[in-house]
Design a protein around this nucleic acid. Sequence first.
DNA 1: TTATAAACTTTGATCAATCAAAATAAAAAT
DNA 2: ATTTTTATTTTGATTGATCAAAGTTTATAA
Lengths: 219, 219
Amino acid sequence: MPSSTVENYLKQILIESIQAGSSEVAMGKVAECLQVTPGTATTMVKSLEKKGWLNYRPRRGVKLTTSGKKMGMNMLRRHRLLETFLVETLGLDWAEIHEEAEELEHAISEKVLEKLDEFLGRPTHDPHGDPIPTKRGSMPNASDRTLIDCEVGDFVRIESVQDQGKEFLQFARKKKLIPGKRIEVVQFDPIADSLEFKIDGKYSLTLGSKTAAKIIIRP
Amino acid sequence: MPSSTVENYLKQILIESIQAGSSEVAMGKVAECLQVTPGTATTMVKSLEKKGWLNYRPRRGVKLTTSGKKMGMNMLRRHRLLETFLVETLGLDWAEIHEEAEELEHAISEKVLEKLDEFLGRPTHDPHGDPIPTKRGSMPNASDRTLIDCEVGDFVRIESVQDQGKEFLQFARKKKLIPGKRIEVVQFDPIADSLEFKIDGKYSLTLGSKTAAKIIIRP
DNA sequence: TTATAAACTTTGATCAATCAAAATAAAAAT
DNA sequence: ATTTTTATTTTGATTGATCAAAGTTTATAA
């Protein structure tokens, strides 16, 4: 029965290690994404190592053990299934669900989770387009191509959006930057740092590279 | 933002004060129903008083303030709505839902609760037959008559069952001791401490007074 | 009416999670 | 090859929730 805090560390370290290509996660990253001081992260990480969730090399970083990875995956599963429930069943806006799921994921039991999964029809992706890990902890590896990797004339499909912030998600919904939508790359101006798209063949949209990089796509 | 612990104290003290007819709740009761040592209860209750949730008279007991009552009612609402959801929507057995709701009630936000209430069709009673407080904190006062208050020949309806324990609830389901069922009192033997009933006009059932007292009824 | 029991409070300690600030090590710049 | 900067660890302290055990009231019984 790990605490919510432990669950958060493992989930967050897993997310970082996926994004950073499976090597060690730096302590700075750990502290940052858990919103604690570096000292707190060090203390916590040492206790996580003692309990076998991860390996810690001082001043190098941390790497989840098999059981740590499993726990992290399980938390990700909880989080994404809950997000799906909040949108699909209760009709919350996708900009509001992250914080809600963040709380609920620590309170829901394996038993209820299983029933929820069944009720939702065993969904494979959450409302942001991120894959939902299976009960056994496997997850299809997502695409790593974003809108900035496209050429002019490319026709692609939005797979997911990588920003859980309210403002961004509200913007994305308004602009139809939603998983599943088809996008055509119309123009690309590196000097102006601007990319122009057409969504659904209708809506025109111009983004800077910073925002374009948040939209994961598939050909 | 009261902690889960504070929420539990307020909910539990509210429940006790309803059951014990609105006077002060003894510290022993508080400690018992929160499963902590008496010393812990004393410490906690003092801090709850400092925060304005209740009034504490040493060696007399505690009484919720208006805001304490409101908070307690809100927790009861959360708990009972969640129990309803777990049974009605996810199909869990009523013997399993108490512990689950006990965790979830601290994690669900007002916003999600409102959506859930709407989704469930604004239910007025939970699966055990207990009334669900409204958003404003009002609750119809339940009947206080149980099966032991009946006379032979009485025809009554089960309003609720007052035991959240797994074993009892499994027994009750098997014997059709379920809110809404009609019961006829067939025999009453004070010496043997046994009461005999007929449920739905079909099933015969004999209970001791201890168990019969757990079944709240209405004429 | 004293002795005993029951209910309650105090005291001193622990545990998990946290922070601020000082100390140290490694990396980058000069 | 030093110095400076940045990243990380240590140290000492705090907060909320808890317990065991000792002390104090109040109630009950003898």
